[in-house]
Design a protein around this nucleic acid. Sequence first.
DNA 1: GCGACAG
DNA 2: ATCTTGTCGC
Length: 242
Amino acid sequence: MTPAAVRAALAHPAGLSTAAAIELQHAARPLVVATGIRGTPRLVAGIDVSIASGAAHAAVALFDLERWRVVEIARAGAAVTFPYVPGLLAFREVPVVLAAWRRLRTRPDLLLVDGHGTIHPRRFGLACHLGVVLDLPAIGVGKTRLCGQARQPGPRRGAATRVLLGGEVVGRLLRTRDGVAPLWISIGHRITLDDAVRMTLRCGSRFRLPDPIRAAHAAAAGNDIDIASVRRKNAPPRSRPA
DNA sequence: GCGACAG
DNA sequence: ATCTTGTCGC
Ligand SMILES: [Mg+2]
């Protein structure tokens, strides 16, 4: 299977068996590149999906780090076509995300995905799927553990420990807020672990989750309360750094 | 065989 | 992910 064929398959995962899905991830793993990003990303796309009774809704929230605000939001809905299986989340969320992606008018510099990247049984989680398919730098932001081992980081924002899997460093457990549960950060595509951590911190300030992801989460849920909440709190850029 | 298990 | 209001703690 050629790289082009693999990418095409990743973009259209419809009707795959779990066995075929797993094979595809094995074939796609080599496509993930961990080289550094060039320049400083300004437009960051937060990506998330919400699911309610068989219907999935995805949101891509474009966040401008300079102006520190959401500058565009693209959404899309679709029927769920794949069951939730740990390790195969991408086959459930990628289709709807791509539908929302097509409605985005501006191309971002970086993708911040709600889900793991290389902290994955086959080193190819949701953030890798999206990064490879869209050919953009991507960071995997996990809220809870899927696999791998890590020591607990220090209590302050910025503290981090390495996430190991099979004797290999696959990510970092990063504290993004004092005394609050850390985030599992990993490479999605075209970025180094250090830059992934750096950018994750740069994309947030007062909340556990990076602002682009918070915005995407609220928009995907279509929940007025969530949206109003995010808009009201509107975390300021560097008012209270570190 | 048993336990773990993103969203 | 979702079901859901109040409540505990800084
Ligand atoms: Mg999510």
